[in-house]
Design a protein around this nucleic acid. Structure first.
Lengths: 258, 258
DNA sequence: GACGTACACTGTACAATGTACGTAGTTGAT
DNA sequence: ATCAACTACGTACATTGTACAGTGTACGTC
């Protein structure tokens, strides 16, 4: 991981790009662009979906759109950092956002969580695409607006609604992270999940005294061996969402009384 | 981010290294080692604490211990991947783990969360040191054992205890991630947090229609502008932990009745 | 119709990184 | 004295993001 330079950052330019506003007034001079920002971003997303975020390099994206590496910078001046922000905003914008209809707040919040879970399942690279701050593009804003609306009419303050949403999304992301790691493991080690845990358990047994770690050995073995990684993430999601909704319920009920 | 090769992986060797067991029977032959695994790992941790995970390179670690880059591989054959696993295990092992005394379960679980929060505050690089699987060394196991014990006597099943702990730690990590991002922002942009949000808001105002995103503009502005990033993470932590504990409470109460 | 300006495009080059490989030196056991 | 096992390290390479300079193109202006 070289700390490869993040090109020249320019928040204003990035923002314009996110909203697809060209900021230069004149634009008809010179050769007509052979590509678009969207085609570049699209290619990058496809690469990331199919081969992971590591497969998204300036060179691979350029090849995918049939241009030379440096041409990418014509459409995405901010380089790779900006490209990833654009990718995130596009997949956010594209997500499904059904109307709430007659759903109660628990179902609405569960739906928000499920949609985010689905998003991470469809684009596992989102987890690894850490940005220091969310790119404030149409996708991010639209998603934010929609998700905030799930808490309408509960009597929560603005700050509370924001905190509640952060709380829910934080859980979903933590769970998605576990799921992504579990999914990546077999590929990395070329072993099935169960086989890996078994091998580790066998090795661990030689090195660690079970009587010193009674809970860890018992529970860890049960959690690790018995269940596959994927199933475990699924169970953790269900368990966690029950806790999340119950936790929010207390707040909502308290607010109702006041 | 080059997908730099992860050296030759060998789970058995890594496990021995984590527990500091030398697996070769003979060891007196040849020149006496001038370093130890621990000195290398220590130097890496110091680098990461002071300058971030990106500052931990094989070359910088080598320089810190006064050796040549390739010598690092003598002590950590698995290369950088293994080094990071060793770093994680060491800081885990070193963490404080006070006895529970007479504390009730809510206080115990809150304490677990607080300790993890403190750990991430002291070592922000932990958040970025994503491993496909936790290194099963003494630090990880000791920490796991201790944290599991916080749920003793609540009548939860093994699987439930594991799920509950995962839930709590997942929240703390998500919060720590936000905090780390907020803390990294000012350095990256060379602006104060408030100034950055203000600049962004000003730019956004030109590009986005507030009437289309009423909640997002109102709540986002309130959440972003009014509070600094650090304060916001603090508030999110308190809010979240209340929800986490309330959510677990429902489970515990239900179990008590049965 | 000539022309110049703003733009698209690209080749080359560089610094940083993880690490494979081969070589040289060291030391205790035999 | 010999040697095998071990430490130490210099060199080399592939991969990455991207700065920079040069080349060509097409529209607006005259």
């Amino acid at each position: 991981m070289p700390p490869n330079k993040p090109a020249t950052p320019d928040p204003a330019r990035t923002l314009s790009l996110l909203w697809r506003h060209s900021l230069s007034p004149s634009r008809t001079r010179g050769p007509r662009p052979s590509l678009t920002v969207d085609r570049v971003v699209e290619a990058a997303i496809t690469l990331a979906d199919e081969q992971g975020l590591d497969a998204v390099t300036v060179r691979s994206v350029a090849e995918a759109v049939g241009a030379s590496p440096m041409s990418v910078y014509t459409y995405v001046p901010g380089g790779k950092t900006e490209l990833i922000e654009l990718m995130i905003d596009v997949v956010y914008l594209r997500a499904d956002r059904p109307a709430w209809g007659e759903l109660g707040w628990r179902e609405r919040v569960l739906s928000v969580a499920n949609q985010n879970r689905a998003l991470h399942a469809a684009h596992p690279w989102l987890i690894h695409a850490s940005t220091s701050r969310p790119p404030l593009g149409p996708g991010v804003i639209t998603k934010y607006e929609y998700e905030l609306s799930a808490f309408d009419g509960l009597g929560l303050s603005d700050v509370e609604v924001d905190a509640a949403l952060t709380f829910v999304l934080g859980f979903v992301q933590a769970n998605a992270r576990s799921a992504a790691e579990a999914a990546a493991l077999p590929e990395a080690t070329a072993m099935t999940d169960a086989a890996w845990w078994e091998a580790q358990a066998e090795l661990l047994g030689r090195v660690v005294d079970p009587t010193k770690f009674p809970r860890a050995t018992r529970i860890g073995e049960a959690a690790g061996t018995a269940q596959g990684g994927a199933y475990q993430a699924e169970a953790a999601y269900r368990f966690g969402m029950d806790r999340v909704l119950d936790g929010l319920d207390q707040l909502v009920e308290r607010k109702k009384k006041a």
